[in-house]
Design a protein around this nucleic acid. Structure first.
Lengths: 209, 209
DNA sequence: GTTTGCACTAAACATTTGTATAGTATTTAA
DNA sequence: TTAAATACTATACAAATGTTTAGTGCAAAC
């Protein structure tokens, strides 16, 4: 019925439970804790399941040790999928094909901060100037931009203007889009066709000293 | 007023050992395993150290449970030097004794964003309300706070007011400190002695949709 | 029809492990 | 100077935990 290394439904439940604890950074359970969780009245039931998982190669039992169950497969590192984003200097045009040329380093960002942008081409920039204070983005902040989305009205975008990367808000007009600075000291810019938008800002990171 | 909680060299070695195991995804050690690692001839030596770490708020001992040492404020550096910070809900008083009780998840943060706070006890909170817009902190932002520094004048601090965590700016007065809201709609608060400051904000993370 | 694997209960034993008591020595703070 | 904290050893008890033996019931395989 159940082929050599395939798991029975119950065994799948057991290994799921073990993996869930591991994911949460907790210790391996005792056999009695497994039994309690599933409602078994004897620790032997839990031990039998784990022994079966060991025979099938999913788990290792460290003999005699308390909480001695070790997961062999699907050992997810506790880092919950942290994303490493290249920090770029001034990008001359488009998305840099060779990141290394303009890369200053990398920034690790939690996927929770990046939302649906995971899997897209992302890059980070250090903010110069106070042109976006109106949107809560200040000098010295890092912004993470997504190069793989179409900017919508209201988005904060990284735009290339006069060979420099600038942050602006994309605003709509009947004749097209224009770029708006979110600070009174900065003038709005209305490029027509040569408007080069390199990414849409998806995250802001600030260090407070 | 603001607790120091500094560790002795030996205690630092012990907590480093505990964090190293946690980082490797292993179970917490037994007191005899700690003793073996450091060459102690009695488990009591290890237990005493862990008890001291508990008193200083770095660790929690689950009574009677094998491998019952739990790291609080577990800051787990990952491969590329990313730091995993626990995201907490409303912390009722002082430092949360049990990380798990109030923990909503973890947030991975780059050490470049955290500056000199690496190695300290850190926690993250989601921002409610617009009381700190004057400092560029908005509703929905995550803030990362350091529980191991003495707040200075001008610092944005996490304070416990009426059982809720609030962000305020610490301002100085000749008679002492008071807490200042950075938004016209919010009133300043001037608690005297019962002022409970749980951390100093060191980073702001914002997701832009 | 017997055997094998699965999924357990029940009771007990043996080891591991947490914890306590008693004590030594050194350093630090009042 | 005394008291408290640090940093341990040595021994021992009790609780937690791994493990074993003995057994039940069911379903699938042979």
């Amino acid at each position: 019925m159940f082929s050599a290394n395939s798991l029975t439904p119950r065994q799948t439940e057991i290994i799921d439970f073990l993996q869930e604890l591991r994911r949460k950074g907790k210790n391996s359970p005792t056999y009695r804790e497994i039994a309690d969780h599933f409602g078994f009245k004897s620790p032997k039931a839990a031990a039998d399941h784990v022994r079966a998982l060991e025979k099938k190669g999913y788990v290792r039992r460290r003999k005699g040790r308390s909480r001695g169950i070790e997961l062999l497969f699907s050992e997810r590192p506790s880092t919950n999928g942290a994303i490493s984003v290249p920090v770029l200097g001034n990008i001359p045009a488009g998305y840099p094909e060779t990141q290394t040329e303009y890369q200053h380093g990398t920034l690790t960002v939690d996927p929770a901060i990046l939302g649906g942008s995971t899997g897209h081409r992302l890059f980070a920039l250090r903010v110069n100037g106070e042109s976006m204070t109106g949107r809560g983005i200040h000098e010295g902040d890092w912004v993470v931009a997504d190069a793989d989305v179409s900017p919508k009205e209201g988005d904060v975008v990284v735009a290339l203007i006069d060979g420099e990367n600038t942050l602006k808000t994309l605003a709509g007009q009947k004749n097209g889009y224009f770029l708006k600075a979110e600070s009174p000291n900065y003038s709005d810019l209305i490029p027509t066709d040569e408007m080069d938008i390199q990414g849409v800002v998806r995250a802001v990171l600030r260090r407070i000293y």
